[in-house]
Design a binder for these strands. Structure first.
Lengths: 216, 216, 216, 216
DNA sequence: AATGAATGAGTATTCATTCAT
DNA sequence: AATGAATGAATACTCATTCAT
């Protein structure tokens, strides 16, 4: 990548983040860099390509970092929490870019055929792999579809964090990650183990007391 | 609402669903109804208002119906499942309108100040209420934030069902609703019940041995 | 056709004739009429359509007139001369429009699928019919392909008159029509009838004079 | 001409022929040759100059060849037929280059001041010379303007062959050349020789009767 | 001879909304 | 209620040509 290409991407990222894709003209970008309009097209084939490259530049290091960091975390539940935390933090640290991706890039007609959709698939597949690994080692239930869980987590985070993206609320990635991981792992039910066991345990306890008395 | 207004909304809904909001011109709508362009503005202040009204017409009966049906369901877990099922079914039955709302209406600048966002809040608050009720009666864990769960569920469903909306896959509302409700309620962990049981089983084994001895 | 449409066509015709199609912008036309740019598109779907309509307006009355006038001419050779004269006169009276058609409209990609090409076919087919009629009545040789003759005549006139169109020379329609009709009808050869006959006639005349003297 | 110049012309000819002048960029030509864009301008002052040189390369050998071949044909009518055949064959053998010249080069503003127009004049003047020679030797009528005949022939061939150039029909140069030469030479009239002869024959008959009487 | 980055002018078209009738 | 003609702003992209290296 030439230095000029990097300049263009930097200017475009700032303008797209501040004003949105539609509201940013190619002339705006060229003007911010200090070159003629046509120069943009020596580096990128279209305005759309500039957008996609801006997003790619944002995505790729995250994927690399996530992959590396996951490898350094032994516990699958901690790996899951890390991926959740990473995504929530993206929304708090780069709300404008997240908004750009979700509200402008994703609704585009050719998005699902684009390189960006592919990046997203690669990124979210990290979580699928973590779940599958957890299932293989018996930590996670085997009857859960990992891709459904992936959609649940990333779709859920999107909604949970959206208030922060649109500036209507503030969120704390650590707290969100803790709560969400807990919820995902142990579920909503107060019953289950805890609900049924008390009864069982109570009965068993009563029987044991009886046994003790009789045996004594 | 006048008959003419209803005609306009019907035509607009069909055109928006088929071609999208941006690709549908006011002239298209007027032409489909058989009136002059200007006539639209006798009934609605703007094209945007027509869109919002189309969405309102779609939303409102769903809210009413959901509220009524929930009242008829006693079990909170079944209520939760119903709301999940209802939302998934919306995506399978009206994918175009769902796409319109998510990909076109929601990214609009004034969406969060609109009547539609309010409708959405009323709709999703049904789930918040169900969760809170479950917590009050002890069925659901009290340490889960109901609004976080609402975002998790609706954001998750959106991602899970998006392939169906964009025509890239097919989904079954019942199956999705079962799996998702189960996952939400009991969580991902294989631990819990199974982890505790070994002790219980040992105790039960002791009791059985005693019973055998007494019966002998 | 509305009055406004006629105004637009008039302005477009003048501008196209003076400056050419490419050098005339839609804004130029709108400005000449005194309306906003967008108003043009209420009357014509595209700039190209305006061009074609300008040409159609020029062509159609000529076809009608030619058809009527031919019906009033009994002699097929005179009919042929009339069509030649008409075409040459078009080049002298409307050189700019002829230039527009030949140098700008005809090289366009979609010309041969356009209504204009069809008009041209209808126009030139008048000459084909005249030739065929002349052949049926024995005035014209039957072994000449009427469509080849049509191409010869109209292609020839185009080249003959082109100097006048580009302002490099002046031509007289009557003189051109006479000479060309004569050439087309009797051909280039001095041989054949005209070449041999003078000699024959001279010999015959000498012999007749001798006969007269002897018989007297 | 340097080897590089020849390469550039070769690539340009192919691209112009295949895609047209406007649709071929200087970059396309440079890319086909394998040099940088700017290199083109070391060899030619402008894109237009490249076009004109491509056409010149096409024209000049034809002129030389035509001039030589004509010299080897004794009969002026055969010379005329040869020039007609040569031109028709150009349209069938090199339709793309003919299209380039007629539909792209000729409508250009500076065409008539260009070297190409001059080449064309030199080329078509061969026919003028043939006609004039035929007139001097009494084979062709002296009252025909040779330049008018030149325009008639070349304009006519252009229209006759245009269907083949645009790929809408096929033509045979020999057949066209025969028919067109015949038409040009003997004209359209069925009259001529046959019309005048009846009188002559009557006169001859009288003379023959006299001779008979005198011989008797 | 060659490079190749930079220039910068130029334009057809759409469409929500208004307003005089 | 309805008409429908008019508005007018707003913008991505191409490419022949130049010139510093």
């Amino acid at each position: 990548m030439s230095e000029r290409s990097a300049e263009i991407l930097g200017a475009a990222r700032d303008l797209f983040a501040r004003n949105g894709y539609e509201s940013t003209s190619v002339s705006d970008i060229a003007g911010a860099v200090g070159v003629a309009d046509g120069a943009i097209y020596r580096h990128f084939p279209s305005k759309r390509a500039v957008l996609y490259e801006v997003i790619r530049e944002f995505y790729e290091p995250v994927i690399v970092m996530a992959r590396e960091n996951i490898a350094g975390i032994g516990d699958v539940r901690q790996r899951l929490r890390y991926l959740i935390w990473l995504q929530v933090r993206a929304f708090t640290e780069q709300p404008e870019l997240c908004r750009l991706i979700i509200a402008e890039a994703r609704p585009m007609e050719d998005y699902y055929e684009s390189e960006i959709a592919d990046l997203n698939r690669r990124y979210t597949s990290l979580l699928v792999e973590v779940i599958a690994a957890g299932q293989r080692q018996g930590t996670f239930r085997g009857d859960v579809d990992p891709t459904m869980l992936r959609d649940l987590v990333y779709g859920g985070i999107e909604h949970i964090a959206w208030g922060a993206v649109t500036g209507r609320s503030e969120i704390d990635p650590d707290s969100i990650a803790d709560n969400l991981t807990q919820l995902i792992c142990t579920g909503l039910d107060a019953s289950g183990t805890l609900e049924i066991e008390p009864d069982l345990q109570a009965q068993v306890a009563r029987l044991e007391a009886l046994v003790d008395r009789m045996e004594s």
